[in-house]
Simulated scan of single mutants.
Amino acid sequence: MSRSLRRGALAATAIVFSIAALSACGAGNDAQTLEVRPDNAAVTVDDVKIQNALVITQPEVGVKGPAVVSATVFNNGSQPQTIDSITLPGTLGTVKLKAAEGAGPITVPALGSVVIGGDGNASAVVENGLAEARNGNAQKVVFKLSKTGDVTLNAFVVPATSYFKDFGPSVVPAPPAATPTASASASAEGEHGTEPTGEASHSAGH
């Protein structure tokens, strides 16, 4: 695991450049050619390496909606593997996986890689959100692969803004509509309140 978990948001900012470069590469390309070593959360277990791992939340704090897990998964083995599940221990988040094309599982080809997150790539959507996660913190993420088994690392939690916007949730709920201010309400009540008083005075004069 990278030592960058202690370096905060500056390290997280650099992650997206690696993701963007890798997302342009086909899954069948040689994993050693694609491999970069950014200063961010990464882990290697047997033939599998996971890097650029992020948990990306809604762009606005307090807005309820899905989050996503974004990462690049390398397979340096001679056999393809599928990503059977991604879990977030310590949270109620449930992750739904979807391959880039078709209804099958997310497959990491032999001597290849797969990018999770971003337009045209596989996706891992935390459909019920991630209320427990706090931006800037690290969240434990467990990738379960068909041959390697569990691969665990800590991923930065970041909002879907700036560099991370294109890798964040595709569903972004609209912020709640603004409510009238107390002063505006009071003013409106005052306007309605003066009319009956005037009528009462006029009647009294007759």
Rank of each mutant, 00 (worst) to 15 (best):
G198W: 14
P66T: 04
G117I: 03
Q58P: 03
S18L: 04
A9C: 06
R3S: 14
A21G: 15
V158M: 06
Q139E: 11
S183W: 11
Y163R: 02
L92W: 02
A41Q: 12
V55E: 04
D119I: 08
A182Y: 07
A41I: 06
Q51A: 10
T107V: 15
I19Y: 05
N75S: 09
A155W: 04
P80M: 07
G62W: 03
T161Y: 00
V68S: 04
K144V: 11
R37N: 14
H202V: 15
E60N: 00
G90D: 01
V95A: 04
L97K: 03
N137Y: 04
N135M: 06
G77S: 14
V172H: 00
A124W: 05
E35N: 10
V158C: 01
P80V: 08
V157D: 06
T13R: 08
G205K: 15
V108Y: 01
K64D: 07
S203A: 14
S2M: 03
Q58W: 02
T94Y: 08
A31H: 07
N154I: 01
S4V: 05
A188V: 15
S23G: 06
V16C: 04
V157Y: 05
V142G: 06
H192T: 10
V151S: 04
E132M: 06
I86K: 06
A71N: 05
G8A: 12
Q51T: 15
L153A: 06
G104H: 09
S183D: 14
S2G: 13
A160N: 00
A178C: 01
L34R: 14
S183K: 13
H192I: 13
A99N: 10
T87Y: 02
P38T: 14
V45E: 12
A122T: 08
V125L: 08
A100T: 06
T179Y: 04
S78T: 13
R7S: 10
T91S: 12
G205I: 10
V151H: 04
E195N: 08
G120I: 07
V45Y: 05
V115E: 06
T161P: 00
H206M: 09
S23D: 14
S23K: 12
N137I: 00
S201F: 11
F164G: 00
H206W: 09
Q79D: 14
F17E: 09
P169Q: 01
Q81S: 08
A103V: 11
A177Q: 12
T148A: 08
E35V: 10
N121P: 05
